[in-house]
Design a binder for these strands. Structure first.
Length: 553
RNA sequence: GCGCCCAUGGCUCAGCUGGAUAGAGCGUCGGACUACGAAUCCGAAGGUCGAAGGUUCGAAUCCUUCUGGGCGUACCA
């Protein structure tokens, strides 16, 4: 509907220009929006006010001319008013609304999709926690956010790949191996003092047990080779656990990319040489520095330490070059907010690689406070005190967990209350939306029992759907595709929960006021069609969120 | 110290990239089931949008300063 009104306005402005009623100036993008106030019409535009400054004329006078020149050939407008400082308010004829539902019917499951992505290849990298311990609640939020961003982009016509970068090289991993080794020695009855900087979590001890059970004291003597084996063993095992945890959340990756792969054939050092050749790297003693300040970073960064080992940053440069060389035109990284200090150096790296700064987009996801009944649950990864994803999904369920993560803008902090998330009451917004869907299914079942199957658009009389609640529903349903589009452009998943919450709310109001199945068969058919369309939109939206749309609950 | 993020009814948060009288949910108070599912609906109270300036027809939204909170500021990842 918006597009139709925008076309009308464009047409009018064009003919105003022809007739010399408007000066040839920059014509702004025309915006049409929902007025808050019902008396301001169904839609409103502020073009006249925007044009006012460049035309050097009063907005209301411009508006008058635009309104006079609107050619409503399809007869969709009931009336047009000029109001306030120069708003143009549109009132749509009540019988044209239901026409909007036709496309829901023809598109079905695909209603809401678009092709704004034009097949552009985009990679979304998220979670990417190093396999030194189980995922915690903060990772879960990042996982779900990244997953849904990917889904939204997919629905918008991008060709999307979900990727997890495994930091399985470097001294954190070494530390992991050592941690297991010491616990292993303890099991053999050796009296060792467990180092402070090692991982304290119980899972380390469990791994040590596992190894002791299957290998006995095999690794007791040769410390070096033992640690290297244990590192790999532990990383594998932990990574598998991570994958399983992610699966319980409904997050599936297209690819797990190992950092180790970057070091094959001296990959990392070759890239550093390239960059050195381009003059982005200088040497100071044994250390190599990357001149990230050339690109606006606040200080230069080390890429090779004086002991000759490359830093994590060095590998990350190589990784990002690898991404672009695989043909991704857009690269999106979803990071925990604690990594924000990393952004400017990564942008510098991307530019040094000959890419534009915008070729790397970073979505920051703020940290999560885990609560139980409003009381913070203490968390410390190092000390091994945390609630894992599996415990969370096990306790509150996948749907509630995902929905709770998605309700907030990723940029704001999130309180995740375990008790609240699992209460099956009105305090929990997931059920509100799911209930609407279940209710719709239930009505359709009832109608089917009475021999009235859900009709298609061509079988109904759309002009019967004129009640205010019906019109509100249709309006909202009509907005769904543009909402998805906006959410894709802004990389903001939270718009979807807000939208379906609204939709469910309008539906519930409608339901309480009007009977769908009645003895008026024409009206019954029209309303069945309306709620079928509503159900389709809820289902499509929930599918994007990775949340189920139950038919009963 | 410096950098990034946040600040909106009692609580948790939206506010569509500058629009008309700032919106939801929870909580509080008052109503609605012999009607398709009451996990629902209807109504009410509750706000100088952290503070002060500035930009313009118009600011919760943009710019500056300040206050308060989170995070970061490694040759860790």
């Amino acid at each position: 509907m918006k597009e139709r009104l925008i076309k009308l306005l464009e047409g009018s402005i064009d003919s105003c220009l022809e007739k010399g009623l408007l000066k040839e100036t920059d014509i702004p993008f025309i915006e049409v929006e929902f007025p808050r106030e019902g008396s301001h019409g169904d839609y409103a535009s502020n073009v006249a006010m925007i044009l006012a400054s460049s035309q050097r004329e009063a907005p209301r006078r411009i508006a008058e001319r635009i309104v006079e020149n609107i050619n409503d050939s399809d007869q969709i407008l009931d009336k047009i008013e000029i109001a306030g400082p120069g708003f143009i308010n549109f009132f749509i004829k009540s019988n044209v609304w239901a026409v909007l539902l036709k496309k829901v019917d023809t598109l079905g499951d695909r209603y809401g999709e678009s092709d704004i992505g034009k097949g552009i290849r985009v990679q979304v990298e998220f979670v990417s926690a190093n396999p030194t311990g189980p995922l915690h609640i903060g990772h879960a939020r990042g996982a779900v956010t990244g997953d849904v961003i990917a889904s939204i982009l997919q629905a918008s016509g991008f060709s999307v790949s979900r990727e997890y970068y495994i930091n399985d090289a470097g001294n954190q991993m070494n530390l992991l191996g050592k941690s297991v080794y010491y616990r292993y020695l303890e099991l053999m009855g050796e009296d060792i003092s467990f180092p402070d900087n090692c991982y304290q979590g119980r899972y380390i001890t469990e791994l040590a047990h596992e190894i002791h059970d299957s290998f006995g004291d095999k690794f007791r003597s040769d410390k070096e080779s033992a640690i290297s084996f244990l590192t790999e063993y532990a990383a594998d095992s932990i990574l598998n656990g991570i994958k399983e945890d992610l699966e319980t959340l409904g997050v599936i990756f297209d690819r797990y990319f190992s950092e180790k792969e970057l070091y094959k054939n001296d990959g990392v050092t070759r890239i550093l040489q390239d960059l050195q050749g381009k003059g982005f790297i200088y040497k100071e003693g044994n250390t190599l520095w990357f001149k990230t300040t050339d690109f606006g970073d606040e200080k230069d960064r080390v890429v090779v330490r004086d002991n000759g080992e490359p830093t994590y940053f060095a590998a990350d440069i190589a990784y990002h070059r690898n991404k672009y060389s695989r043909g991704f035109d857009r690269v999106i990284n979803v990071w925990g907010a604690d990594h924000h200090g990393y952004i400017s150096r990564m942008h510098a790296a991307v530019q040094a690689l000959g890419r534009k700064r915008e070729d790397l987009e970073i979505v920051l996801v703020q940290l999560v406070n885990l609560l139980r009944n409003g009381i913070p649950v203490p968390m410390s990864t190092r000390a091994g005190e945390f609630v894992t994803i599996r415990e969370v999904t096990g306790e509150v369920g996948k749907d509630a967990a995902r929905y709770n993560f998605l309700m907030r803008r990723s940029n704001s902090h999130l309180d995740f209350d375990l008790e609240l998330a699992k209460t099956q009451s009105s305090e929990n917004p997931v059920y509100y939306v799911q209930y609407a869907h279940a209710r719709i299914s239930s009505i359709m079942r009832l109608a089917a029992e009475q021999g009235c199957r859900a009709p298609c658009y061509d079988e109904i009389r759309p002009d019967l759907l004129t009640a205010p609640e019906e019109r509100e529903l249709i309006k909202l349903i009509d907005t769904f595709p543009e909402m998805i589009e906006g959410s894709a452009k802004a990389l903001e998943p939270h718009r979807i929960p807000y939208y379906i919450n609204d939709l469910a709310s309008v539906f519930h109001s409608f339901y309480n006021k009007h009977k769908v199945v009645s003895d008026n068969s024409e009206l019954t058919k029209a309303r069945l069609f309306l709620i079928k369309s509503t159900g389709t939109v809820i289902r499509n939206a929930l599918r994007l969120l990775g949340v189920s749309a139950p038919e009963r609950m």
